[in-house]
Amino acid sequence: MNGLFGDISRRDFMKYCATTAAVLGLSEMELVSKVSEALAASSSKAPVVWLEGQDCAGCTISLAGALNPPVSSIILDKLSIRYHETIMASAGYLAEAVYEDTVKAGGHVLCVEGSIPTADDRFCMIGGRPFREMVKESAEKAAVIIAVGACAAYGGIPAAGPTKSVGIGKIVKDKPIINLPTCPVHCDHLVGSILYFLATKSAPPLDKIGRPKLYFDELVHDNCRRRSYFDDGLFLTDWNDPKQKNWCLYEKGCKGPDTYADCPVRRWNDGQNFCIDCGAGCMGCAEPDFYDGMSPLYTAESERSRNIMARKEAGLIPPKEKA
């Protein structure tokens, strides 16, 4: 079989043959002449390489929650998902081959989910290679780079652990990166950033730490519906007490006064609910020092929380004007 195809490798053949022969009703011989054509042709859809490093796939699952537009239209109509370990049909060498081709050709949207270990490459190996190398090589010719979720943006929870993990900004230093922290990524933030890129061929305006201003320009605290209770010093202490159910969650560890994100106005899961509305407080997952800088999470016993209260008492977090 190899001899028939000259310089076209077996895997290239399989890649195109599988998709075209059955549908176009071509014989294998006819197909051979079409293969090189196919290799040269590129689709009008933006090619996407989505890498998963030290991740939990939560950001992928979050993206799969997109309903408007639905994720099916995003992955089939708007984008050409070339490599994404959790959703692609292929595995093993077939998967690796598409990855190599796409990265070599360049011009792709690079999404990275998960952090990168710096203590030792062996903490994250894919296809027998260090994940760190994959990030570097796939970033080289990428049209745009998106750090999907807190881990890829700033290291997230693994940054607090023994693998000494970092976000991609510490590995890829010569290119702008769209950081979309929160743990997991909010599907609107991701879909919106991709749509913005497709429309303008550029990244949306970013803040000093690479987050789109569109989503990360305001403090959670300033849009919180519990804000007046914070200003009045009424803090929830008992989740069973219906009287307290709308009170401020400071005592339960809320880090909203230190966190820039649009969760209170955008909410999560198609507007269903979000952390502060369910009575649990904001854990600061949109900030670069999450998780270590926010821990402990479910109590005000952290240095962070004490600092918030000290600022309130010093008048540095003035009451929001009441209507």
Partner: peptide, 19 residues
């Protein structure tokens, strides 16, 4: 839709795949 994807030579991520 599927035929359209095939004609545009872009059936990712549904292919490539094991036969």
């Amino acid at each position: 839709k599927v035929v359209g994807l095939v004609k545009s030579k872009d059936v990712f991520p549904l292919t490539p795949r094991y036969k």
